[in-house]
Design a protein around this nucleic acid. Sequence first.
DNA 1: CGGGATCCTTAGGGATACTG
DNA 2: CAGTATCCCTAAGGATCCCG
Lengths: 127, 127
Amino acid sequence: MVTTQAGAKLIGDPYDAGCATRRILDRIGDRWTVLIVGVLGDGDARFSELRRRIDGVSQKMLTQTLRGLERDGLVRRTVYPEVPVRVVYGLTEAGRTLLEPLRALQEWSIAHLGDVSASQAAYDRAD
Amino acid sequence: MVTTQAGAKLIGDPYDAGCATRRILDRIGDRWTVLIVGVLGDGDARFSELRRRIDGVSQKMLTQTLRGLERDGLVRRTVYPEVPVRVVYGLTEAGRTLLEPLRALQEWSIAHLGDVSASQAAYDRAD
DNA sequence: CGGGATCCTTAGGGATACTG
DNA sequence: CAGTATCCCTAAGGATCCCG
């Protein structure tokens, strides 16, 4: 049995609650995390800029999600003590590595959205 | 502006609510969907088998998530009218294509879980 | 500007019981 | 066995107000 320092199983029972993928997905699987990382992939951004670019995010969720990403070491928060204060968010090295798998998922989404929508329509019509 | 039949924007405003990635993520982004697809990637499985292999899933959520995946055309449900009835779930062709991006995410998770955990611990200690 | 703190709502999801 | 139907509760998240 292969385990990390934290004791999360990687092999052997890959779908149980301790699984690495599951732990990560619980963190980055929510709607805002992915969107924020996506936007920051285009370059650093200020709080208000993120708020404007991510349609529908509340101030609370933006703050909360950014804190989580900072805690995970995926986002860096830089405060410029000017008046008024300026805060810039950007991806860390680790955060940037996340862009690739997310990009893969995005490409899949774009490639299959049509099929999925069609399947949904057919399913709903059938029943 | 490129749009699908459904009118979801693909290019131009990639982070707004109509974005393909967002629509897909709202569907497959939850904990159970990914785990179910992962298990079915190993081969077809019966309902009770899925329930056993996916630790912690309730019967309600398993049913609900499988229905959603079937509706999306990612999972095929086959009923063998024996007594007692036997129901087998498996990935469709489309469902199988989803395995690759998920695998990429899983590999990222395994590769970075240690760093993320360490970062979290450091963050919490600093506070 | 970039949040923190509170209140309040609702929907996601567990537990349980029943069915073809 | 493979679900459906119901009740119920918690916690995610929106709205609002305030502050350095």
